[in-house]
Measured scan of single mutants.
Amino acid sequence: ALNRGDKVRIKRTESYWYGDVGTVASVEKSGILYPVIVRFDRVNYNGFSGSASGVNTNNFAENELELVQAAA
């Protein structure tokens, strides 16, 4: 299972961040479909780089994520 702070690569092909590595911000335990919230260094097309207006978190299912580096 994934944990907060883990570095993960995104495998959801239609995602803006496909192939990117993000950090797990939190994992919901309530049984929702996309329980893993991942935070990225770059914002998506809703904002400009360096601006706070873009979105830099997204929810994924565990099977859409590949663990790159476990949290220390």
Rank of each mutant, 00 (worst) to 15 (best):
L65I: 05
S53H: 15
L2S: 03
N44R: 08
V68C: 05
R4Q: 12
T57W: 14
I32H: 10
D6W: 05
Y34N: 07
D6N: 02
N46E: 15
F48V: 15
K29S: 12
N46V: 06
F60V: 03
V43Y: 15
A52K: 08
N3E: 09
W17A: 01
S26F: 14
L65P: 00
K29H: 13
F60Y: 07
F40L: 03
D20R: 05
G5Q: 02
Q69R: 09
N59E: 06
D20Q: 08
V21R: 00
F60P: 01
E66D: 07
P35Q: 11
V8K: 02
G47Q: 09
D41P: 05
P35D: 06
N3C: 14
N56F: 08
S26W: 12
K11E: 04
E14S: 12
A52H: 12
V24G: 00
L33N: 10
E64C: 03
A25I: 15
G31F: 10
V8D: 04
R9C: 11
L33F: 07
F60A: 02
G47D: 15
N44E: 11
L2E: 04
N3T: 14
Y18I: 02
V38K: 00
V21N: 01
E14N: 13
A1C: 14
V43E: 09
S51R: 01
F60R: 01
D41H: 09
N46W: 06
W17K: 00
F60I: 01
S53C: 15
S26E: 10
V21T: 07
G54L: 11
A52S: 12
G54D: 06
W17V: 01
N58E: 15
K29E: 12
V68W: 05
A61P: 01
Y34A: 06
A61R: 09
L65S: 03
S49G: 12
L33A: 14
R42V: 06
S26V: 08
V8F: 03
E62C: 11
V38F: 01
V27P: 00
Y45K: 13
A71H: 12
F60C: 01
S51M: 11
K11R: 10
N58A: 15
Q69C: 11
E14G: 12
A1F: 11
A72Y: 11
V68L: 07
R9G: 04
S26M: 10
E62L: 11
